[in-house]
């Protein structure tokens, strides 16, 4: 890549600047700042849109009373059951059960605390769900 071709297509990263390795006029490799590249911006937007869609989908199911807030915050934190079970330190099938709204209502306070801690929210907010965010 030539130095003059280092892309400067500002996109999802805003003010952040990355580094590209590029060749200057004399053929020497130099470090050049880049504010983004349109193809990357495209796939990045696509990935975050997909995340947004999944969150919205789970939220809808939660509001219908099918899924629990654990399911919602799991999506919101870009986790899956496997990762969340690692974070909480309980088995995968238990986490899977806790995604059910009915099971969630009967969860012990200590487990709720552990979930809330991983998600970085209070127990009250975890119980209430995402009404005000």
């Amino acid at each position: 890549m030539d130095k003059k071709n280092v892309p400067q297509d500002e996109g999802v990263f805003g003010q952040w600047r990355g580094i590209n390795y590029a060749v200057d006029e004399s053929g020497q490799y130099v470090l050049e700042k880049t504010s983004g590249w349109e193809p990357v911006n495209i796939v990045d937007r696509q990935a975050w849109e997909a995340v947004g869609e999944r969150i919205a989908f789970v939220r809808e199911k939660m509001e219908k009373g099918e899924l629990s807030p654990v399911a919602y915050y799991m999506e919101k934190n870009l986790m899956d059951v496997k990762m969340l079970s690692n974070y909480i330190g309980i088995s995968r099938w238990r986490v899977k059960r806790h995604l059910d709204a009915g099971v969630f209502r009967r969860l012990s306070h200590s487990l709720l605390e552990r979930y809330a801690k991983v998600f970085g929210i209070s127990v009250e907010q975890l119980e209430k769900g995402p009404e005000n965010d």
Binding site: M1, I19, V40
Partner: peptide, 22 residues
């Protein structure tokens, strides 16, 4: 989605461009 992620891994996450080839 998969293809998009391949590109992100190649170009986005601090590689210096071209999947470290540069």
């Amino acid at each position: 989605l998969y293809l998009g992620n391949v590109i992100r891994l190649q170009e986005e996450f601090g590689t210096g461009g071209g999947g470290f080839r540069f």
